[in-house]
Nucleic acid binder design. Structure first.
Length: 422
RNA sequence: GGGGAGGUGGCGGAGCGGUCAAUCGCAGCAGACUGUAAAUCUGCCGCCCUAGUGGCUACGGAGGUUCGAACCCUCCCCUCCUCUCCA
């Protein structure tokens, strides 16, 4: 299938420049997407853009993932000392490495026909001098035109205004596109819908200095049916890095998707076929309580990001922990699940631990006060038994096979606490 | 640089000498109902404890006035608006 058609039925086309469809149909081309390395890991929000890159490659085009090691350095100009900038450069470098690993699951860097590439724009941006930049890039931009861009116009009309740095940021990204055009004949750029202005700026630059036509396509902003931010849980951002967000938590995030969002997310984040998704949607409509679409979504996305075995383990862990009575499970079963689930340890104490202390010190709650509150409102379970008295003690003999507690907070957050010798 | 406005809990935004750990809205958490969904309703939503007309830390920072300050004074830091003229 051609890329445009693929993206279109999935609802991934939020905006496109003229001729994109035809250009993509005409034959393989090289396209790129930029990633911001400001965090040590990408998060589920970045997934949409990652799948877009993967679709590109699947449809025979060569994808380039550009990590913004250069643009990232000027992205946040507020109050940075020279020293911090150096640190930031190192961090960015580390982040780039992490991101490469995450992207590699989605891209094939070894493909003979359409190999993927990962490049850091610091490679050329940090070498670009101000004078050179102004002469070679700046002179091709009309401030009048820049001011007319929605993103800029909105900021200029707003209370906060816009700084010179931010105003000129799009020129740097435009320059990226030019560099990629020169080096790899890259003629296509995708990005989130917020990237529209930056993408067209690059296209304009290439047209002016090389006389070539290029194309852009932007993806929609992900929304949730209930109007909350996509990609956040109680614990914060849902990261792709398994040490930051355990595969089990990752799986749970997707499993808890709103019914109304599930079909949309299946199209966005999985590579399942149109028929398969329609089937899942229909099944969900018939028996929503079975959460068929959510289960498939969670399984697929966890597989894509963490691999088959991690996904299977996460799924198994979820099934076990939500099966009802965890005390019916053997220690061995629970220990299998252990590395996947948020967990902690408690030093053995013959006399036990006050529940509130245990909850706070193991990180189930952020303070004793919160633990007390949760118990009072009936939201804490130890080994499937609701704790009703905040003064209660949890005793080691209550542990499963003397070693493990399964603490549940609310309806869906499980923690494992293992007793270790004093 | 001159002039103006302002910095309060995750965010927005009240408060303008005591009854303020701070109205309210959003977000968040829990409970009920369910399907580990949504909506709705209820409760909670700085930290500590012996859980109370308890202790501690907080309203940009540092001092000061006062029996008492988020609220008044001084200095400092930061943010935003504005600066041809007229209105």
């Amino acid at each position: 299938m051609d890329l445009y058609g693929e993206l279109a039925w999935r609802g991934l086309v939020s905006g496109e420049t003229e001729g994109v469809r035809e250009a993509l149909a005409r034959g393989p081309l090289t396209g790129y997407i930029g990633f911001d390395p400001s965090a040590p890991s990408l998060h589920v929000g970045s997934l949409l853009v990652m799948t877009a890159l993967a679709h590109m490659q699947r449809c025979g085009h060569s994808p380039i993932a550009v990590v913004g090691g250069g643009t990232g350095l000027i992205g946040d100009p507020s109050g940075k000392t020279a020293e911090r900038q150096l640190l930031t450069a190192e961090q960015v470098e580390a982040n780039v490495q992490g991101i490469r690993g995450q992207l590699s699951r989605f891209l094939d860097f070894e493909s003979a026909s359409a190999p993927a590439r990962l490049i850091d724009n610091a490679e050329w941006l940090t070498k670009l001098g101000a004078i050179e930049f102004m002469r070679d890039v700046g002179k091709h931009f009309s401030v009048n035109a820049m001011l007319a861009k929605d993103s800029v116009k909105r900021r200029i009309e707003s209370e906060e205004g816009i700084t010179y740095t931010e105003f000129s940021y799009s020129l740097l990204q435009a320059y990226d596109f030019l560099v990629l055009f020169d080096r790899f004949s890259c003629t296509f750029q995708m990005g989130g819908s917020d990237q529209w202005g930056n993408i067209t700026a690059g296209m304009d630059l290439i047209r002016r200095v090389r006389g070539a036509r290029t194309y852009g396509l932007v993806l929609p902003l992900i929304t949730t049916a209930s109007g909350t931010k996509f990609g956040k849980t109680e614990a914060g951002t849902v990261w792709l890095d398994p040490t930051l967000t355990k595969p089990y938590e990752f799986y749970q995030f997707w499993l808890n998707t709103d019914d109304r969002d599930a079909p949309k997310y299946l199209k966005f984040f999985t590579f399942l076929s149109r028929d398969r998704i329609a089937e899942l949607e229909a099944a969900s409509g018939r028996e929503p309580e079975k959460r068929i679409a959510q289960r498939e979504l969670a399984r697929e996305v966890t597989r894509l990001v963490h691999g088959d075995s991690a996904a299977a383990e996460a799924e198994a862990a979820a099934r076990k922990l939500f099966s009802g009575d965890v005390t019916a499970m053997s220690l061995q079963e629970l220990l299998q699940v252990f590395p996947n689930v948020p967990s902690s340890t408690a030093r053995y104490a013959a006399e036990g631990w006050p529940v509130v202390d245990l909850l706070a010190s193991c990180g189930v709650t952020s303070s004793k006060g919160e633990a007390t509150r949760l118990i009072r409102s009936g939201g804490i379970y130890v080994n499937s038994r609701r704790v009703t008295d905040e003064k209660e003690r949890v005793r080691p003999e209550q542990a499963i096979e003397g070693q493990l507690f399964v603490v549940r907070k609310g309806k869906k957050d499980n923690f494992l606490i293992r007793i270790v010798p004093d």
